[in-house]
Design a protein around this nucleic acid. Structure first.
Lengths: 261, 261
DNA sequence: CGGATTTGGTTTATTATTTGAACCATTGGT
DNA sequence: ACCAATGGTTCAAATAATAAACCAAATCCG
């Protein structure tokens, strides 16, 4: 692993629940030497990617990121495009819909919209990363994304979030296979209790998925009919999103869609 | 300069007018070896900070930045806070107002708002970086920010944007001194022709400015009275912003404000 | 209190990674 | 068919990253 990767990985430890981290926390999280981490932190700080709270001496994400994010959105408005379809779908199915991108061996949220007006709602944080093996988005990514990701995920220990989380590699593989066969992935309370998700991948430029769109539904509201309905919607959206991002749903995937319509 | 800095600097070459860059462009811009640049680019790509257009092989900013930006805004909403005041000021003075942060030896835009309803408007791009010596924001930063920045800026050649740009170190120093004395900075068509800006710094935690707020006005609409009026508004906003960002306007700066009110 | 622990930070020789000149492959132009 | 330009790769040489030991300050705790 190169120096740049090590340094950039430090940034990934930030999340909505961990907005400020100290030197020792980084050391523990990354497993690297204190001096190394410190050098990386100071260099990231010098470039505006981090800021240091002068009182606590903890580090938080810096302002340089804001500008880069603005440039990216202005010149390649993937988020805006996806957000439009996510919102449309959310209003159609009246549930929480979110889009995520494959990033390393986790899913990074791109946007979300809650189409639910009343009753039970699913919580969702745009700022946290999702594990592959425990979420529908992740299963879509594993099933239709670059194959080396599946290897990477299987190589590590599968963390358990609920009693339904597939922690056995065989069980995970079975789920991935099922997603490939059906053309959509389902996760039933594998990440958060009472939450069931249905997901389909989208394609940016290669024949391998670059992200996924998911519908998260309280487990009480879900059944086979609903899943099928949602899956059909997801395919439509997946097609539209892939197209607008300059990609296309690959032929092999299109067969799934054909079977239903 | 460390490897991390070199790599992160590559990201700074992106702007609204240069959203995709090729290997050779990076090489020219950074002055580094092609192999080095290439290694950095691939490592940044592997971490999601860049994406490569598979057709043109050019690089663009990646999606990892979006998540980080979301985390930062959710947990430390500086932009949102500043944006509120920028908007308020823009509506009060009915001109274009923008806030920028010191980043290295340039100013990085944080947000802007155009309070102008009709007539001539000033163009502003949130995604580009501003030079220190040719903008009012920059002068504020040089006058009230960390002193080493002034040294850095003076060490390099001062690029000329219009015939009014101070390209002579002495001329620049005089302008900085003037800003220190008055408590606000004025740039009269030094960056863009026909555009005159007035600016005041804000303070995040140290006694040194971390950014500045500027009002950009078409040169035809400006005179001494207007400048004074705008400056008074700027001081108020600067005070509010500094406070809400957890900082405070230092005592020495407060004297400027006292002289008028 | 006072000693022990934790944290942030620095220094150093050792080590390993980064570097850059030269090289190859592909594309586009003439 | 040639040349120029671009993206990308290789490998010895040089530089920069590393990790153990060390320091200072803050905090914990009996």
């Amino acid at each position: 692993m190169g120096t740049i990767t090590k340094a950039l990985n430090l940034l990934n430890y930030f999340s909505e629940t961990a907005p400020e981290l100290g030197l020792m926390e980084f050391k523990k999280l990354s497993g690297q030497d204190k001096a190394t981490v410190h050098r990386h932190l100071t260099e990231l700080t010098a470039n505006g990617f981090l800021e240091q709270n002068p009182e606590t001496r903890k580090y938080r994400l810096g302002a340089a990121i804001l500008r880069l994010s603005a440039v990216r959105e202005r010149t390649f408005p993937a988020r805006r495009i996806v957000a439009h379809w996510v919102k449309e779908l959310a209003c159609q199915v009246e549930e929480l819909v979110h889009a995520s991108l494959i990033q390393g061996s986790r899913m990074s949220s791109l946007c979300f919209h809650d189409g639910r007006v009343g009753g039970t709602r699913v919580y969702f944080s745009e700022a946290d990363m999702l594990p592959m093996h425990a979420t529908a988005s992740g299963l879509s990514a594993l099933a239709f994304g670059p194959p080396d990701i599946l290897k990477k995920v299987l190589a590590r220990k599968l963390e358990s979030y609920t009693e339904y989380t597939p922690t056995d590699p065989q069980a995970l593989l079975a789920k991935v296979e099922e997603a490939r066969r059906k053309g959509y992935a389902v996760s039933n309370q594998t990440y958060e209790r009472e939450v069931c998700s249905v997901s389909a991948p989208f394609f940016e430029n290669s024949a391998k998925a670059s992200g996924a769109i998911s519908v998260a539904i309280p487990a009480t509201r879900i059944d086979e009919t609903k899943i099928n309905e949602v899956a059909r919607h997801l395919w439509q959206i997946s097609d539209a999103v892939s197209d607008q991002l300059g990609g296309a749903v690959p032929q092999e995937f299109r067969q799934h869609m054909a079977r239903v319509s």
